[in-house]
Design a protein around this nucleic acid. Structure first.
Lengths: 151, 151
DNA sequence: GTTAGTGCAAATCGTTTGCACGGTT
DNA sequence: AACCGTGCAAACGATTTGCACTAAC
């Protein structure tokens, strides 16, 4: 599902251009956050990302607030997308919000992704029928994943 | 969508029986919370419910914690169901979780409900294809409702 | 040198919890 | 009388914010 075709160089250049055109500054922290989420494909909490960077780059000064601020930036720019877990916070993943959905395991917390054309089409039909201008949709199927069913 | 066929008397008796069979006590607070959410059909935050009760019954002692505790109870018993809005909390509505989904307006915060057989079926197919034991699913279509599109 | 970004700690917000008191059974 | 439920206030956990300092431009 993730967009593996885009090289990190390309992603980084895009990000730099975006920063430039918004009078924002290019900092080591911002680069590292993007790099970490690009390299370690998967779904991470802001704290996960903070810890990964602290581990990989012990000498870089970094506060959790910067991680939150940068993730907001990256999400607005559609470079990363997030999935919400209510009071338990959000998880972020690299990639544009290409309308894929999630299977969430209630036992292990693991996340599988899927894309289903039938559902996408039907959502558009429903929105139309309600005269609703859809900008986003969320679908989560929760249950027990195959790996956890044996336990 | 809501189950208007069930009378309040019936609902209340069910709730009382449930409490009895779990060695829980029947209190004025618990009754009022159920009553308020039954009477005012719609989607309410715990705070909404707290305020509604405070307004309608100024002489009843009530703490917000009791509202949270009772809503948890009612949700476990499938008497009410909730929809989550991330860090912004949950909204509760009367009625069993009969697998209906929501259209959420990003402008006015309003919620419309819908039920779609095609989507329900497709979700089951997807879960099966991933060997996933589905226990619950969430679907939210977000955008601008018809009323807000003029503004 | 100007402006934006940072870490830190304090603040926020929805929710939960410990506890002594009060109500239900 | 026994036990559960309650309100209150403090605790919580994820996130945001005010601020003085630092780094990018």
């Amino acid at each position: 599902m993730s967009n593996n075709r885009v090289s990190y160089q390309e992603v980084l250049e895009n990000f730099k251009a975006l920063l430039r055109s918004n009078n924002l500054k290019y900092t080591k922290q911002r680069e590292l956050i993007l790099e970490i989420i690009y390299e370690n494909r998967g779904h991470f909490t802001p704290e996960d990302i903070y810890n990964l960077i602290k581990m990989s780059y012990p000498d870089i000064r970094l506060g959790i607030a910067t991680v939150y601020r940068t993730l907001g930036l990256l999400e607005d720019a559609h470079i990363v997308s997030s999935i919400s877990f209510g009071a338990q916070g959000k998880k972020y993943e690299f990639g544009l919000d290409d309308h894929h959905d999630h299977l969430v395991c209630l036992k292990c917390g693991g996340i599988e992704e899927f894309f289903d054309e039938t559902i996408e089409k039907q959502q558009e039909r429903i929105a139309q029928a309600h005269n609703f201008k859809m900008t986003k949709h969320i679908m989560k199927i929760m249950g027990i994943c195959s790996a956890c069913q044996g336990k």
